[in-house]
Each structure stands twice: as C-alpha cells, then as structure tokens.
C-alpha cells in the first residue's frame, strides 16, 4: 500500500475523468492520472512510465527507474502482492456487474 508500482500508460480511457489504462507487469488496469498531467495533451503520456499508488499515477519515471523499482519490489515480495490485489479487486467487481 505504501510503495508504488511502476506502470506504463497504454491508452487514455476517459479524458474528462483523467483515467488511463496502464500496463503493470502484464496486468492491465485503469488508473487516475490527474497528478501527473501537465499542460500538454493527455495523449503525450501514452508510452510513458509512472509510479502507481493504489490506482493513482503519482510520479512520472523513466524506463530505467521503472525497471530498477520493479526489481526491488519483486525482491521484497511487494510486486506480487500488488498484482494479486489488483487481480482480486478486478474479479470482485466482475462478479457484481
């Protein structure tokens, strides 16, 4: 919950609500990007990396930092935990639709 996990923005899914689809270690999920948008068009964010905290992109990072961070998170066991939590949350929502 405290450590973010790197994700790569693949698509802007809802420009009004500032939501984007992000690829986090192969898992796709929608995240809020309000904290990282600047003045430039949202589309420019596609392909960039961010640190994702509980579904919110909090800071832009470069690819190397993303790889290093992911590696530490894997060693701490936190990456697996985050991804598991994401999957479980998605499955829970699926059931209630």
């Amino acid at each position: 919950m405290c450590l973010g996990i790197p994700g790569k923005i693949v698509e802007i899914s809802d420009a009004t609500r500032k939501l984007a689809m992000v690829d986090i270690s192969g898992v796709k999920r929608e995240v809020n990007i309000a904290c990282i948008v600047g003045d430039e068009p949202l589309e420019n964010l596609i392909g960039t990396w961010s640190l994702i905290h509980v579904g919110f992109a909090m800071s832009r990072i470069d690819e190397k930092e993303a790889a290093l961070t992911l590696d530490v998170l894997r060693q701490l066991g936190e990456a697996q935990e985050e991804i598991e939590a994401m999957r479980a949350s998605a499955a829970m929502l699926e059931k209630t639709s």
């Binding site: 995240v31 579904g55 985050e82 949350s89 829970m92 929502l93 209630t96």
Partner: peptide, 17 residues
C-alpha cells in the same frame, strides 16, 4: 467486507450498487 486495490474500485462498486 470486500478487499479492493484502489478507492477507484470502491467508487465503481458504488456506481454498480
């Protein structure tokens, strides 16, 4: 009681229920 990854998922749950 449901575990969520993000408050966004709780929001979505509210929309659906």
């Amino acid at each position: 009681i449901r575990m969520v990854y993000s408050p966004l998922d709780a929001l979505e749950l509210a929309r659906r229920n």
